[in-house]
Computed example of a mutant assay.
Amino acid sequence: MILYQSGFLTLDYDPATDILFVEWPDVHEFLVPEINQTLQILVDHLKSYDIKRLLVDASQAALEIPPQEYKEVLKEFGLNLMTTRLEKLARIITPNPAREHNVEEAKQEVGLTLRLQTFPDKQEALLWLEEEG
C-alpha cells in the first residue's frame, strides 16, 4: 500500500509484515534542505503508522553532493530515526565504497540504537526484517 508518493520518494508499506519499503532517492538535482525535508516525511510516516521495520534500497541511487554534506544528511536522518519506534533497518548497499563508508561513519557518530544491517539484495534484507527479535 502506497503511503506517500512524490517525484522524489515513494513509501510502500506492507501491513502484514510491518515493513516500509523505500528506494533511496537520487541526490543530484536537489539541495540538501530538500533532501532533509524528504527524509523528514519518511520519519513522520514511520511515527504515524508506528512502523517497526524499514527497508531502504540504496543500490541504484545517484549521489552528487560532497561526501561531508551527505554524511551530515545521514547523521540528521539517524537522529530523527531514533525518535521513532523503528527497531530494524535493512539497507540494500550501493556499489560505491565511499558512500558505504559515509554510512558507517554517520552510524558511529550518531550512536544509532536501532538494528541496522546491509545486504546485497532485497530478498536477503526481507528475510532478516521478517525474523522475530
Rank of each mutant, 00 (worst) to 15 (best):
I2D: 04
I2Q: 08
L3D: 07
L3P: 10
Q5A: 10
S6W: 08
T10S: 07
Y13S: 06
D14P: 03
A16T: 11
A16F: 05
T17A: 13
I19C: 09
I19F: 09
L20P: 10
V22T: 11
V22M: 14
E23A: 10
E23G: 04
P25H: 08
P25I: 06
P25E: 04
D26F: 01
D26S: 11
V27W: 04
V27L: 15
V27I: 15
E29N: 11
F30P: 00
L31V: 06
V32Y: 01
V32D: 02
V32W: 02
P33L: 13
P33K: 06
E34N: 03
E34H: 06
Q37V: 00
Q37D: 05
T38F: 00
Q40N: 09
Q40K: 14
I41A: 08
H45M: 03
K47Y: 04
K47Q: 14
S48H: 08
S48I: 04
S48N: 10
Y49C: 04
Y49S: 07
I51V: 11
I51N: 04
K52L: 12
R53N: 14
L54N: 06
L55R: 02
L55V: 02
V56D: 05
V56E: 12
S59C: 07
S59Q: 13
S59E: 13
S59I: 06
A62S: 13
L63Y: 09
E64G: 06
E64W: 04
I65T: 03
P66Q: 08
P66F: 02
P67N: 10
P67R: 01
P67C: 00
P67D: 13
P67W: 00
E69K: 11
Y70R: 11
Y70M: 11
K71Q: 15
K71D: 00
E72T: 11
E72S: 09
V73S: 08
L74R: 11
K75D: 00
F77H: 13
G78D: 02
N80G: 00
M82R: 03
M82L: 08
T84Y: 09
T84R: 06
K88M: 05
A90S: 05
R91M: 12
I92Y: 14
T94G: 12
P95C: 04
A98N: 09
A98T: 14
E100F: 10
N102H: 01
N102L: 12
V103R: 08
V103H: 11
E104Q: 15
E105F: 00
A106D: 03
A106M: 02
E109D: 15
G111K: 01
G111E: 01
L114T: 07
L114K: 03
L116F: 14
L116H: 15
T118M: 15
F119Y: 04
P120L: 14
D121P: 01
D121N: 15
D121H: 14
K122F: 03
K122C: 08
K122H: 14
Q123A: 15
Q123W: 07
E124D: 10
E124W: 06
A125F: 10
A125S: 09
L126W: 01
L127Y: 05
W128Q: 01
L129W: 12
L129F: 07
E131W: 08
E132L: 13
